[in-house]
Simulated scan of single mutants.
Amino acid sequence: MNAIIPIASASRAPAQPRCGLCSFNRFCLPQGLGEDTMRRLDQIISRRRKVQRDEQLFSMGQSFGSLYAVRLGHFKTAQVNQRGEQQITGFHMAGDLLGMEAIGAGQHSCSAVALEDSEVCEIPFARLQELVAQVPELMQQFHRTMAREIQREQAVALFLGNMRAEQRLALLLTQLGARYAARGFSQSSFQLRMSREDIGGYLGLTIESISRLLARFRKAGWIDLHNRDLRILDLAGLQDLAAGRMEPECEAA
């Protein structure tokens, strides 16, 4: 069963957001909040916003005003270095909160682009700050969410600094599976929403290296892949590879 999150009909006007009715609220700010606080949070969420495939939700350098909770679909975030090269900084799915990297500087340090037709709940940050100051449990949850974002950034640094190419890809695939499983979808069968170019941009590898590694993973019996439909056949093997407990047969060029 593929982990496909349905997209609402484009002809239907977005409804007023209701955190308590959202299937993914346990991943977002409402996690563990009481009903009264949930209602107050509902009141400050300005709208649901549809974002078409390849459309930017926000751009690098844009002034910061809102956070965005992914309700449906998938996004990638990316930065452009001084040489004009794009570095993918993350892949995001329903329940993730986008825009937190801009809180300190007041402008976005990356862009966020929809990988498919998606939908977000827009949370004006000024109004959220007012509510956070009034509700201690919401402040605690917000701090936990920020801590997860810091941990994610540290994990990316680990990807690029200390891991071999095949470890990076194995870890990405197993982490994607775990994230889908936490959302009630299959851990072993899902669709890769990002392109091989995006995967390479995230892991610091070329498209050719990603293609060779995927071919090796199929040959080893760890995965089955048709177009973007992925099945993990040997989760333990991939986990051992990601953790460095298995030596590769050869390195990716």
Rank of each mutant, 00 (worst) to 15 (best):
G61T: 01
A94P: 09
M139P: 03
P30R: 03
Q86A: 09
E149D: 14
G32V: 01
F185N: 00
T89I: 11
G161I: 00
S111N: 02
R148F: 12
S59A: 11
T206L: 07
A13F: 10
N81M: 03
P248K: 05
V156T: 11
R228Q: 15
W222M: 04
M163V: 01
L225E: 01
D117K: 01
L67E: 05
R26W: 11
V51H: 07
E149W: 12
V80K: 05
S211E: 12
A181N: 04
Q82M: 13
G34L: 06
A105M: 12
Q140K: 13
W222N: 00
R212K: 14
I123F: 10
P6T: 00
G65H: 11
Q79V: 10
S23M: 13
Q107E: 14
A178V: 03
V120Y: 06
G106T: 04
S189G: 06
G32C: 05
R164N: 10
H74R: 08
M1K: 06
Q87S: 11
L115K: 02
F27R: 00
L160R: 10
S59K: 13
A155H: 09
R212W: 15
S211M: 11
L169W: 08
V132R: 05
Q129H: 10
E122K: 00
C121N: 10
T174F: 12
S63M: 13
Y180W: 15
G32D: 06
G106E: 09
E149M: 07
G65M: 05
M38G: 02
H74S: 14
I4C: 09
E251F: 11
A69L: 12
A102G: 07
A126G: 09
S66A: 14
L67C: 07
A165G: 02
L192T: 01
A242L: 04
M38Q: 11
R39V: 07
R127C: 08
S23C: 12
R53M: 13
T174N: 07
